[in-house]
Simulated scan of single mutants.
Amino acid sequence: MVDRELHRGLEGIAVAETRLSSIDGERGELVIGGFPVEGLATRATYEESVFLLLNDRLPTAAELDSFCTELTGYRTLSEEVEQVLRRAARENVDAMDALRMGVAAANLGVDTTEPTEAREYAKRLVSVIPTIVATYWRYRSGDAPVEPREDLGHAANYLYMLSDDEPDPAAVRGLETYLNTVVDHGLNASTFVARSITSSESDLVSAVTGAVGSLKGPLHGGAPGPVLEMLLTVYESGDPEGYLQETLDAGERLMGFGHRVYRTRDPRATVLSGAAERFYADAGDEAFFDFVEGFEARAVSRLAEHKPDRPLETNVEFYTAVLLYGVGIPRELFTATFAVSRVGGWVAHCLEQMADNRIVRPLSVYVGDRDRTWTPVDEREATNSPKASTE
């Protein structure tokens, strides 16, 4: 029997089996590839995390070396993609729009045309997205793009391509922790889009292009920027209590708190707060981090008073903003940097979908009219339209 019960946003509906990640929202736990996020994010390189998702195990030293070599070989952009990014920069488009354009053309110049080579497309997409983002940003800033370096790891190379400077080891470790922490997170909106596109037996480039479009939305990947703006504004004002009072009294959302899944503190926030604390201590900027911790505590307390029946704890976006700001990622690239990480999860989900595929085809609940009669066009009056003016 067909279930016609409406589940808005597919909430509570399981549509796939996966070995990639598991979320326990009640207990505040996240497992990635079998590892608690706390145990993986601070120890692994990003390349190890991607290998884990693609192969369901960690690589040996020889396998990791070979895998890194494969990834570095896919970092370079074709001239056609660079032309697109130059045009995007001249027109000052949003970074996520530029990324979408670059990803859509990511297979240009890559000789992987057979369906059996999907894993090669996966590696290409993981490797090329940082180059797309950095190249666009260099053009946008009026600078020449920086060629990727084969001797640098994924996180270090991204920082290098953005700045044209030797990456600081503390910044590299902070960014790598971030990339590992958010590489996969269940069947979120962008991952579901990627799997849905793949389910029609479309290609990986199309799937990841669609995922980028989903991630662009402010309800999914766009929150860290506003969190940073909030924190910097309050830090400069020196009046966190006044800001909290004014924001909550106005019924406005407090950015960086609350999550669709978690009913307690987001475990990723815990990982990233630790990474941010280490980074700011190394950078000698403990004052800003101390303020951030104090603001978080005040905010959580005030939210509990304001909405006692609704758990609104710190989410991943709060410390994402703090950490990415610290390591030198421009605010305009926060969401694109999210994609630099999450593409590893996207392609792993797509390959998983291919291995046991059934096209995604949910139902809808029809709520429209059923007994309308046809009126020839020359007999229709404007009042027949529900949007017609009554003036």
Rank of each mutant, 00 (worst) to 15 (best):
T45L: 12
E82D: 12
F257E: 06
Y139F: 15
S199K: 03
P362F: 04
V37A: 01
R263P: 10
I197G: 02
D24K: 07
R265C: 06
E241C: 01
R75Y: 12
D164S: 14
V37G: 02
S78W: 13
M354T: 00
V205G: 06
L231T: 02
A211K: 04
E313S: 03
Y158E: 10
G39P: 05
T181G: 04
F334W: 10
L351K: 02
G25A: 07
G213W: 11
L64S: 01
L77S: 08
V37C: 05
A355F: 04
F291R: 05
L248K: 05
D285A: 13
M101H: 13
S141L: 12
A134N: 12
R331G: 00
D356Q: 07
T60H: 11
P362L: 04
R43W: 14
V2D: 15
D143V: 00
A348M: 01
L244P: 03
I129W: 03
D266C: 04
G28K: 03
Y262K: 02
A276L: 05
I129L: 15
A105L: 15
L40W: 05
E391P: 05
E176Q: 15
E80S: 14
G274P: 09
D111P: 03
T198Q: 08
P308K: 08
V208F: 09
E150N: 11
V110P: 01
G238C: 09
T320I: 02
L10M: 14
A287Y: 09
I32M: 08
V193Y: 00
N107S: 14
Y139S: 04
T247D: 06
A304Q: 15
A207V: 04
F318G: 02
V343N: 10
V103M: 11
C68D: 10
L77I: 08
A156W: 11
S202W: 08
V81G: 09
